[in-house]
Design a protein around this nucleic acid. Structure first.
Lengths: 338, 338
DNA sequence: GTTGGTTTTGGTATCGATTACATTATGGCA
DNA sequence: TGCCATAATGTAATCGATACCAAAACCAAC
């Protein structure tokens, strides 16, 4: 079933059928109708490989994330894909499991597939893989990866605004001793959040104590362990900010395991604002990362890039994070000053 | 950058380069080496559109789920994609948002992309879309969609084994009054779970009371509302089985909101065994659906189908569900008989 | 009934890789 | 050395759709 059969059946040339398929304006209304009917009759679907080969474009975008099991990503993927669908673009999706080698493989495979652009939402980054894409003039959108890679399209997620709101919120509740559960240093995103915390503390005139900043593995266990370690210090912090929600939940469980009430004895704030925030008890106060906006920007940038509306790199969109207050924060036990 | 340039640079014909690319055994070792080096030098990547056009296959599989935001799916997707990667196959991914029309669109788009097969993990199903695929001899794997569609490959997930374990577990703890939070009737999966519950109750010789079976929308709110409604009955059940974990968490919150302790006053069991089970307090006892196995079967079936190892439909694999006991179940308050 | 201009349609080279078939190189042995 | 079988390589048709260019159809005006 190919375009020739349709052409034969409709008594026109393949060129005319092609014009109908591509909604070319210069087809007589009657032929248009007729050809359309034949196409429907035969249930004909054009061969995308042939089309792509000829056109040099694929109408496929690549989407790479670190870890699909991380509940941060589904909403982002969802939104990206919805936009793509609306533009009749397909999405090839892959994840790296936080490994740099896999990122390289992913990009390579997507290049083989002739994708029209790639959005890379990974915490780890690899200059070489990016160069590989650049050499092929393939549009690439990254997240918070400026600096040496600034020639790629970049989406700037400002973790500071949310971190500042979080620390100010705690400060206003009366907290002065605030700890932080950090993430592994090799990830850009966790580094960003750590420095956002430091900046926020500075802004409120609070000191960052080394023994109150402990690294976790981003999973439940890591948060649990980190919390226990922080609680071994003396004096203890009265509030904790966590690099992500999952570890915040771990921290919550750890606090409870040693008999501390949340938020009575300890306030906890997470990062990400995942659905799980409303499922735990107490519901978790968290810094929201606007995933829909991020997906939207990424898609729009790729679309514009490969439609060549802009030869120049687009302006870097800035996305602000924002505190969502729920039940895991309250005045510290000692003095309910506010 | 195409195969001709490589051929020219290596002083061989395109046929030879192609043979090298496809690991054909009849290339002299020295030429093989040489051509490989040139390919590496030029950073040449073959054009997949051309290759697919010629070969008539795409090495792309389609994967359709209802809702990527439903935490049931990520692990399944993850596993499917990992297997695909291992076989150098790409995955185009899409979701239907539970809408039948979108399912049809998804399948159509995937056919246009020349996918070699599609795995459909949706709760809703649409005969017409499936026929569309069948007419093109496109392998399709469905989940629990036998009966009239039995000519497609099907994976049979047995919800009964898990439901029976769940009800028996409650029975042994001493529960006799057991309620059920059902899901919307239009989904195959929720119907399956409901009838599994009924069967399990029968097996234990327990009656299913109408007022203890209430339908929820599969979301947190739905579970919350359904639980409140069930609690309005008198006498109340002492234990609840929920169609999914998310509603079970809603039920947990509802119980707590009216002053009931879980598991002290009310035992709760969910379905799915999502990560969130370990995050809530108390951790949720749940029926595990082996998502890895499902993904594995689906992938294997598609692979075998499109490699034509089997002209005949493959045997329908059966996947058993299993209870995972955690902290949300305990003997009923009245009599701790066990 | 021409002519000239505008629509509409058709013929065909082309995209880049694969592969059947043709051709040339290689090596073993008399 | 010469011949033949076999291994290695090359030539060119092919996959299905697109788009350039040319041809044909159409129409209006003289």
């Amino acid at each position: 079933m190919d375009i020739q059969q349709v052409a034969r059946r409709a008594n026109v040339s393949t060129a005319t059928v092609s014009r109908v398929l591509n909604k070319s304006p210069k087809v007589k209304a009657s032929t248009l109708e007729h050809v359309k009917r034949v196409i429907a009759e035969l249930d004909y679907i054009p061969n995308t490989s042939a089309r792509n080969l000829r056109r040099g474009r694929s109408r496929i975008l690549g989407l790479i994330v670190s870890d699909i099991n991380n509940p941060f990503f589904p909403e982002l993927i969802d939104n990206f894909e919805a936009l793509a669908r609306a533009h009749a673009i397909d999405v090839i999706f892959s994840h790296t499991n936080y490994e740099v080698d896999r990122l390289r493989q992913c990009i390579r495979r997507m290049v083989e597939r002739n994708v029209d652009g790639i959005a890379v939402f990974t915490s780890e980054a690899d200059q070489a893989s990016f160069e590989f894409a650049r050499a092929r003039k393939l549009p690439l959108v990254l997240m918070n990866q400026d600096g040496p890679r600034s020639s790629f399209h970049n989406i700037n997620v400002n973790h500071r605004t949310g971190a500042i709101e979080a620390v100010e919120h705690l400060y206003e509740l009366g907290h002065r001793r605030i700890g932080f559960i950090a993430g592994p240093g090799q990830f850009q995103s966790t580094r960003d959040r750590r420095s956002a915390f430091v900046a926020a503390m500075a802004k409120c005139g609070l000191a960052v104590k080394k023994q109150w900043v402990v690294e976790g593995d981003l999973h439940l266990q890591g948060g649990y362990a980190a919390m226990l370690e922080i609680l071994r210090s003396s004096p203890c912090p009265t509030a904790i900010l966590s690099t992500n929600d999952v570890m915040a939940v771990g921290a919550l469980q750890a606090a409870r395991s040693v008999g501390l009430a949340v938020p009575g004895d300890l306030s906890i704030i997470g990062f990400d604002n995942l659905p799980v925030c409303t499922m735990v008890t107490p519901p978790l106060t968290s810094v929201d990362i606007p995933r829909r906006d991020i997906a939207g920007h990424a898609f729009r940038m790729l679309l514009e890039a490969f439609e060549q509306l802009h030869a120049e790199p687009l302006a870097t969109p800035k996305v602000l994070t924002q505190l969502v207050v729920r039940g895991s924060t309250a005045p510290p036990a000692a003095g309910r000053r506010k």
